[in-house]
Design a protein around this nucleic acid. Structure first.
Length: 728
DNA sequence: TGAGGGATGGGACCA
DNA sequence: CCATCCCTCA
């Protein structure tokens, strides 16, 4: 009856048209997950099952939220205005702004990103004279975030020894500092929002009555606190529609808890569990490989992808002697694919860790192939942007100590550590912000800091009432930031970024979505002025990488960054034991399963063609490492693979043999001693451990030992005189 | 104050 | 090897 539902398969249709009950949709890679989610929303509204205002849809990334809004808008004749669609953090921010008094926050609270948070932790540690060797700031930060994600405040912490007592104190001191500065970090957004809803019964009832339909994307990535937050909102008979894929859970390291899927099913007595297993993305061979690989994991809810498309090309496997050769191979393939007419943007080169990109970039650059690297610093995380934002934060709230400290002497204006310390002492003595302590300074510090304070005061005055973009522009000039970077030898990029910030401000003002989201908070709270809205936007939206659109470029990124994307052709590089699976995960079973899911994600990115490659030797951290092929290659069905190089590890060629150091060096005086049979890099076979490669040696004569990488069977030190080794 | 030397350590990510 | 941090010295 409805064109909305055309072309959905049986399971998709079933999911989209479920009654108003909890549902868990196990959506395999490429199974039309986003389509189901967005069509569900459109269907609920179109059929009158739900009003726009009763919809709450949660994602993890701004990109996913934007895509959801765009697709829902395209399906419905009405505006998406009334719906709440956003990230966990964005939605919590919205709730907290609207009810800041109930939440115990100033209306203009500042959001700290992890950099800001770390700086804040450092400041607290310094003030309390904490030994940073015993309590490294990063660890303290980690501890605080960990506690918050478990929903634990300092008084509730379990204190069992001196260290944990100290941690609890530091956490409390950090919280106090945040309160004083009106600052809120990322986990705090969630926890504060959770506590608000939990304690404030009328408010909770209000939102429970409103959001009859709660939809969650990437449910496998939720942490414990997010799960509890959802549980709270879903109380009172609301329907929680969770979409996720346990096989694509790759964020355990940032506290994602896959167990939430099973917990959800059990605790909510979910009546509807639907599996979407038909894949619309990849050819059969690629899916067969993915299915076979993931079947090695024990902890799964269980799913098997299939496709109506043909089996397509086999997976091409390439073994290189060095990482350099591997990179050239990839570059040459890319070149030839492009010559055959494939758009370069349809080609992705994936790797496990960022350090691997360098060799590949070099090879692409040498062959003149345009490429684009994802990851690295985002726009709003760049130092010049953070500096500019710090000035803007001071305009919005001069009591923002973090912002003040960041730019009080940047660009340098003769305010040294001495003056800053005097200011901090003055503030501590009176229990005020740094800004308020400026007037109480004496001597040299008073003059220098005083001139900075006047600069800020003047800026506040002169930008009052100006449009946002003009405010930003004015600040860039008056602060001396632009001038400073213009004078720097490599400052052109930074100057361009600063100019881009003006554009971003202008675009933000016009952006209807952002304006609507922030100008009219629920419950009739005061509207937030554009500057504060922009600052919140900058903190929550770290800014997609530079907008260098236009050039058709090959895409380079980590496997993590590739999640959710798809390409015509995918290269998975560095398939070596120790690298992928990463050595720090290879030892524990859970870690290994996560690595395998990561490989699963990588494989399922490819539509038509997939290359798998690895190198025998790789320059990592400045030294050559000798690796064996990843066990993941062995876990793929031989029938779908096509080896481009002879199957199995090729022995060292003559040149490599001569270059490789002998395992046991002749002792001094042993001139002309015959070369011993083993060399670093050589392949050997051991009766028990199987195939391996010699990666190190020590000792001499009868005591000589060799270190051998047996891949999945581990790294072993063996006594040359005893172990039964055969050259392979 | 800030440039430059030496030690250090190195997985992945989004808000 | 490289980036980052801390510390020294001009």
């Amino acid at each position: 009856m409805l064109s909305l539902l055309d072309h959905l398969n049986r399971e998709q249709l079933q999911a989209v048209t479920l009654p108003n009950q909890h549902a868990l949709i196990l959506a395999g890679a490429g199974s039309g997950k986003t389509r189901v989610l967005t069509t569900r929303i459109a269907w609920l509204i179109q059929t009158g099952n739900a009003s726009p205002a009763s919809i709450l849809a949660v994602t993890f990334t701004n990109k996913a939220a934007r895509e959801m809004i765009a697709r829902v808008s395209a399906m419905l004749p009405i505006s998406t205005r009334g719906m709440w669609i956003g990230t966990f953090h964005g939605l919590c921010n919205r709730l907290l702004r609207a009810h800041h008094r109930d939440a115990g926050l100033p209306q203009l609270f500042q959001i700290l990103d992890s950099q800001d948070q770390l700086a804040m932790v450092k400041r607290v540690l310094k003030r309390l004279n904490v030994d940073e060797d015993r309590f490294p700031p990063r660890e303290v930060q980690w501890f605080i975030n960990d506690a918050k994600e478990e929903g634990i405040r300092p008084p509730a912490l379990a204190v069992h020894d001196e260290a944990s007592r100290r941690h609890a104190e530091l956490y409390a001191a950090y919280e106090e500092q945040c309160r004083q500065e009106g600052a809120v970090d990322f986990p705090e957004l969630l926890l504060r929002c959770y506590e608000l809803l939990e304690r404030n019964e009328p408010l909770r009832a209000h939102y429970q009555a409103r959001f009859r339909h709660i939809l969650v994307d990437e449910f496998q990535d939720t942490n414990r606190l997010q799960y509890r937050w959802l549980k709270l909102l879903a109380g009172g008979g609301n329907a929680l529609f969770a979409v996720g894929d346990d096989d694509q859970s790759i964020y355990a390291f940032r506290h994602a808890n896959v167990g939430n899927m099973a917990d959800f099913e059990r605790e909510f007595r979910v009546p509807n569990v639907i599996r979407l297993e038909q894949n619309y993305r990849s050819h059969g061979n690629i899916l067969d490989a993915a299915n076979a690989l993931i079947s090695h994991n024990r902890k799964r809810l269980g799913k098997n992808l299939w496709t109506a498309a043909g089996e397509g090309d086999p997976l091409r496997v390439f073994e290189a002697q060095t990482d350099g050769y591997e990179a050239s191979f990839v570059a040459e393939e890319v070149q030839s694919l492009a010559r055959d007419g494939l758009a370069r943007r349809e080609i992705a080169i994936l790797y496990r860790s960022n350090a691997q990109s360098r060799v590949i970039e070099h090879a692409l650059f040498t062959q003149g192939i345009p490429y684009r690297v994802y990851g690295g610093l985002r726009f709003f995380e760049r130092q010049e942007i953070k500096h500019a934002l710090a000035y803007l934060r001071l305009l919005a709230n001069p009591d923002d100590d973090g912002a003040l400290l960041r730019v009080v002497n940047f660009p340098t204006r003769g305010i040294g550590a001495r003056s800053v310390e005097a200011l901090q002492d003055a503030a501590a003595a009176r229990g005020t912000s740094l800004w308020q302590a400026v007037g109480h300074l004496t001597g040299k510090a008073a003059a220098a800091v005083g001139s900075f304070a006047r600069l800020i005061a003047t800026l506040r005055e002169s930008t009052r009432g100006l449009p946002l973009a003009e405010t930003v522009e004015h600040v860039l000039h008056a602060s001396g930031l632009l001038e400073h970077y213009r004078g720097e030898r490599d400052g052109t990029d930074r100057v361009e970024n600063l100019e881009e910030l003006v554009n971003a401000a202008a675009a933000f003002t016009q952006d209807e979505f952002a304006a609507a989201q922030l100008a009219a908070p629920e419950g009739g709270g005061e509207a937030i002025d554009p500057l504060n809205a922009f600052l919140a936007h900058a903190a929550l939206e770290s800014g997609e990488n530079q907008a260098a659109e236009g050039v058709d470029a090959v895409q380079l990124m980590t496997v993590h960054a590739a999640k959710g994307l798809e390409f015509q052709v995918v290269f998975i590089t560095g398939l070596e034991e120790g690298l992928f699976p990463h050595e720090q995960s290879a030892h524990d079973p859970d870690g290994l399963e996560e690595e395998r899911r990561l490989m699963y994600v990588a494989i399922t990115r490819a539509r038509a063609r997939l290359y798998l490659s690895f190198a025998q030797t790789r320059l990592l951290h400045g030294q050559t490492r000798y690796n064996v092929a990843s066990r993941f290659l062995d876990e793929l069905p031989a029938g779908v693979l096509k080896w481009l190089t002879p199957r199995g590890r090729t022995p060292l060629d003559d040149a490599a043999w001569r270059a490789a150091p002998p395992v046991v060096r002749p002792r001094r005086g042993d001139r002309g001693a015959p070369a011993l049979p083993y060399r670093i890099g050589q392949n050997v076979v051991h009766a028990k451990f199987g195939q391996g490669v010699i990666v190190g040696a020590k000792g001499s004569g009868a005591d000589a030992q060799v270190q051998i990488n047996f891949g999945a069977n581990g790294m072993k030190w063996l006594q040359l005189g005893i172990a039964k080794l055969e050259p392979a």
